[in-house]
Computed example of a mutant assay.
Amino acid sequence: MTKIEAARTEYQDWCRAVGVDTLEKVNETLEAGKAIELINLCEARQERKYAQAADQIYWKRNRCRIVMMSGPSSSGKTSSSLRIAQQARVLGLKPKVIELDNYFVDREHTPIDEHGERDYEALAAMDVAFLNQQLNDLLEGKEVELPKFDFKEGHRVFTGKTLRLEDGDILFMEGIHALNPDLTPDIPRDRIFNIYISALSALPGGEKDHGSTTDKRLLRRIVRDNRTRGISPEDNILRWPSVRRGEIRNIFPYEENANIVFNSSTLYDIPLLKYYAEPLLCGISESSPAYAKAQSLLHFLEIVRALKPSEIAAIPPTSIMREFIGGQTL
């Protein structure tokens, strides 16, 4: 059994243990007026998983000083990394964040894809040698000046920000290539702790079985990007195949390198996403090339009862789902 399969199986076993292992049972729970109880149960499970991840980092702290996190789009990587770092602080560790986006090569050296466009998702778009030099210097106790990538000008700059690893410091790094060993070829494997984050599990829904976790991530992305990035649901649907190709090429081949697979699914996320996504999807016209996919998503959302505003208000501000609907305080 792969690590991904094991994580999915563990989640499904938990769903059965708490008696909510299909979308029909999710609906029954909501109709029984137990939505807030379900939300609290899911949040308690997530908190336990974050704490378990931090425990493993703590146990390996004397050797593992670098935590690498990756996962496909809209898996809740940002929230999860912040929550795991928070739990690490509870144990006395001091997480230090290094942004991998600051280690791009200068724009003129970015590789060109098959369409003649600059491929910023390619590993060759990263300055691997410079990143490894800085990581090794940090592991040796040296102080380094951290780069800042100027996306407007297309090159690296230095602003005087420095970092040295002190006792208890742990580096946290997140990015699409984070679990690819070719990103850190000069770093011993036992110095790195890998975490893979994804919304792995979809619940079966009776006759309308829906097994695609990718659609759940697309719904998360539609809701988040409409709210924070000004990207319309139509544009998001049309961009999704390109996003998926990038995941297949750059993320999924390395998922089994993870020390921990973190499943960011919750039992209430589809009813929650229905409240926000349904009106957005209904606004896509029949003439749009995104219409067929929008209708497919709407057809799936028919299965579930949307959460009510009073129930949504009970979702804590630290929840992973707040990354998508807003109101997060991490």
Score class of each variant (00 low, 15 high):
230 G>C: 07
201 S>Y: 12
225 D>H: 11
205 G>D: 08
230 G>H: 10
217 R>H: 02
205 G>Y: 03
218 L>P: 01
208 K>D: 12
220 R>M: 05
213 T>F: 07
207 E>Y: 13
214 T>E: 15
228 T>M: 14
209 D>T: 09
227 R>Y: 07
204 P>S: 10
218 L>K: 00
219 L>E: 00
208 K>N: 12
215 D>W: 06
219 L>N: 00
202 A>W: 01
224 R>A: 13
213 T>A: 08
218 L>D: 02
220 R>L: 10
211 G>V: 13
203 L>D: 04
204 P>G: 07
207 E>A: 15
201 S>N: 13
230 G>P: 14
231 I>K: 12
219 L>Q: 01
205 G>Q: 03
200 L>H: 08
226 N>M: 02
203 L>N: 06
214 T>G: 02
221 R>V: 11
219 L>D: 00
212 S>T: 06
213 T>M: 02
210 H>A: 15
209 D>M: 04
220 R>I: 04
200 L>W: 08
216 K>H: 06
205 G>S: 10
222 I>F: 11
226 N>L: 02
214 T>P: 00
204 P>D: 06
207 E>F: 14
220 R>Y: 04
213 T>I: 00
225 D>E: 15
203 L>F: 10
211 G>D: 15
200 L>N: 09
228 T>W: 11
222 I>E: 06
225 D>V: 10
227 R>W: 04
205 G>E: 05
206 G>F: 03
224 R>V: 10
200 L>D: 05
219 L>P: 00
